[in-house]
Design a protein around this nucleic acid. Structure first.
Length: 270
DNA sequence: ATGGTGGCGATGCCA
């Protein structure tokens, strides 16, 4: 056998998406998590900080390059990578110049990644619900363009949709409510029918749930494990074929003064 | 229980 095959090494790329619900309020948690898990690429949502106030130093000290797309008080996305970040794009092409800071994209480590924060929608039929539909339409249009480039894609973020009843602690309580309604599930599924793969959308056995990623503060949902799976890492076929595993870092939701979301991680062989 | 808690920023808005 040729020596170059015997000596060929493969490496692992790890990616995490995490809605931190304020990067400044969660900075200690983020630093602790990055120290413990050392992910290659980090996709953050709800940073809630303008770019000139972004706490770059403690993250750069851990070896990360940083791309940020923030705004005052609300929303905000960021990408951290141990490799250089190239071709950083802020916002979705069809949403105009004054759009909220909900989509950030970059090319790094041979992968095109996006950090995505889909509007919550407030309630089915609400004005904000229609904004949510427009955002998904813009995602879908941009995905069609991106898939044509034939680059590996990893689209991570808070999609604010639980794909099926297996992603909800009590589907009867949440039936046709915001995050779980049939239209929202159709909008999310349209990204999958275009070719993205959701590695945590396991076919559940009877009575089994997929792992939750969000537990409501207001109902003390984490105390009773009343959660939903609304944060997702979606992969193009190239990336999906190289998947080692995907999981939810549920323990982080149990730390002191946590975000209401847990990090979602995956590893790839490449 | 039609509420609850939490972040921002200074009050209500957003989730």
């Amino acid at each position: 056998m040729p020596r170059n095959l015997l000596s060929r090494t493969s490496s692992t790329l790890s990616v995490v998406t995490w809605n931190v619900n304020s990067l400044r309020a969660r900075l200690d948690h983020v630093v602790r998590f990055l120290r413990e898990k050392s992910p290659s690429i980090v996709l953050l949502q709800e940073t809630k900080v303008q770019d000139d106030a972004f706490p770059s130093d403690p993250l750069a000290d851990l070896g990360y390059n940083i791309a940020k797309f923030g705004q005052k008080s609300y929303n905000g996305t960021a990408i951290l990578s141990k490799a250089p970040l190239e071709e950083v794009e802020k916002g979705l092409p069809t949403l105009g110049d004054d759009q909220e800071a909900r989509y950030l994209e970059a090319f790094t480590s041979g992968v095109r990644v996006a950090s995505i924060y889909v509007p919550n929608g407030e309630a089915v039929g609400h004005t904000k619900f229609h904004n949510k539909e427009r955002f998904f339409t813009a995602l879908k249009d941009h995905l069609a363009t991106s898939l044509r480039q034939e680059e590996p894609l990893i689209w991570g973020g808070d999609y604010n949709v639980a794909p099926t009843d297996a992603d909800v602690y009590d589907p009867k309580v949440w039936r046709e409510r915001i995050l779980c309604s049939t239209p929202e599930r159709t909008w999310l599924r349209s990204l999958l029918t275009q070719g993205l793969v959701d590695p945590l959308d396991q076919t559940p056995e009877a009575g089994q749930c997929n792992p939750f990623t969000w537990w409501d503060y207001r109902t003390r949902g984490f105390d009773y494990d009343r959660g939903l799976r609304i944060d997702h890492l979606l992969l193009s076929p190239w990336a999906a074929n190289r998947l080692q595993k995907a999981w939810v870092e549920k323990n982080v939701r149990g730390w002191n003064k946590p975000s209401d979301h847990a990090p979602v991680m995956l590893s790839l062989t490449y």
